[in-house]
Amino acid sequence: MKRFPLFVLLGLLLMVSCNEGKRLPIIGPRTTLEVDGATDTLYHSIPGFVLMNQEGIEITEEDLKGNIVVADFFFTTCPSICPIMKTQMLRVNEEFATQEDFRIISISIDPRHDTIEVLKDYSQRLGASTAGWDFLTGDLDDILDLAQKGFLVSAAEDSTAPGGYIHSGAFILIDKELRIRGFYDGTKEEKVDLLMRDIKNLEAEYFDS
């Protein structure tokens, strides 16, 4: 049996060890562009929006840029999945709130009831430091559009659903360029564990680059 060249072995070893921390996928439709004979990929990113937070401050997609963001859709009178989603989001908040470049946004899909005042009261009652956590309200159609076309999750009025709305329990992970990097079931503790691990992986991506 021929001796396998040592340097090839070492090379392989190095390659394997440098693949620690898998890169998160970039999720969503994408288009390829021909630019000067080279192809460039345009990834889906969160589109422009204008919403108000619980302090009455206008929040747009510009405020999200440069941050790792976890987003969810909820409404304050939601009887079914929202309470457990909030309990889980509190975990995420506790773990990452003090970090710069990290934000949480919880967008209400019942803006008629969830006014700025209601959201302010709600965020205070949640009982956690919600400094980096925006509770957003605005125009209903804009919000449902943003949910479905921007964040790629379901959210719609449904008179047969408990609370009157049907919506996804997903926590959506967004990177600093507004691209979607993951969906996690916010009603399941083990999925939120995964999210928290992926947030750290995502941070590492920026650190390494």
Binding site: P79, S80, I81, P83, I84, K86, T87, Y122, Q124, R125, L126, G127, A128
Partner: peptide, 15 residues
Amino acid sequence: IQCHGEDGKGLGALY
């Protein structure tokens, strides 16, 4: 359990 919790402690000042 979603609102009042497995430990019966509720959630913040919400529930």
